[in-house]
Design a protein around this nucleic acid. Structure first.
Length: 216
DNA sequence: ACATTAAGTGATT
DNA sequence: AATCACTTAATGT
């Protein structure tokens, strides 16, 4: 029987080639915990303390932020296999409560790394520092683009970007979601999403089915 | 077969 | 682009 550590080690080498240093891989394998979440599960909610940094092995996750006032939720981005949650770094290192909510979109497997190692590895391992900085930078750029599209673009191009981002995160051209779920993510009405999707379908960009949208 | 939920449509603001 | 007031279609029990 293989131990969890050896399993983590082989997963790391396969899915996180950026984390190159052998010694680092071994430490992750030693302290990391393999965790599984079913689709729809809220992994981390607002206000909860972040005690782990996740390395996503399989599946995908939706990261959203709650509006200052009540109720309204706003989608920030999706995370897929091979990625990590940039927001969790700062939360961890400053031991702040989570400002975001993360929810499994698909059944998801991740390696959870306890917070106490995050900081010490920064100075100890070059490839850890690079990994953290690079994912931070990438997500920040993506976030700014989302911001731009909200400010300057119409719903149609926002919807297109949403579909592409989600398809990229799930690593599949087919998206499993209802129109109302998408509408909620985009802060739009369900009817608007339905109509725009219909238009995309007639343009031959997507194919629609109940609870699923396939990008062509 | 019936109830429930998802999706399509037109009119109105 | 939102909301309303439906209709139609697909699915679950």
């Amino acid at each position: 029987m293989i131990t969890e550590s050896t399993e983590i080690l082989s997963i790391l080498q396969k899915k996180f080639p950026q984390i190159a240093e052998k010694a680092l891989q071994e430490e992750i394998a030693a302290v990391g915990k393999l965790m599984h979440f079913h689709a729809g599960t809220v992994i981390m909610d607002y206000q909860s303390y972040v005690r782990m940094v996740p390395l996503i092995v399989e599946g995908s996750i939706k990261v959203s932020r709650e509006d200052d006032q009540e109720g309204k939720e706003m989608l920030l981005y999706f995370l897929g296999a091979g990625e990590t949650c940039s927001m969790s770094f700062t939360c961890c290192m400053m031991s702040k409560k989570s400002a975001i909510r993360t929810e499994a979109v698909e059944d998801t497997t991740l390696i959870g790394i306890p917070i106490q190692y995050i900081d010490q590895w920064m100075s100890k391992f070059q490839s850890w520092k690079n990994f953290i900085m690079l994912s931070y930078d990438l997500k920040m750029i993506e976030l700014v683009k989302v911001l731009d599209s909200i400010a300057f673009e119409g719903m149609d191009s926002r919807l297109k970007k949403y579909l592409f981002a989600r398809s990229k995160a799930t690593n599949s051209p087919t998206i499993e979601a209802t129109h109302s779920e998408i509408a909620a993510d985009l802060n739009a009405s369900r009817e608007a999403v339905s109509r725009l999707l219909k238009k995309l379908e007639s343009l031959g960009i997507v194919q629609l089915g109940r609870n699923q949208i396939t990008i062509l």
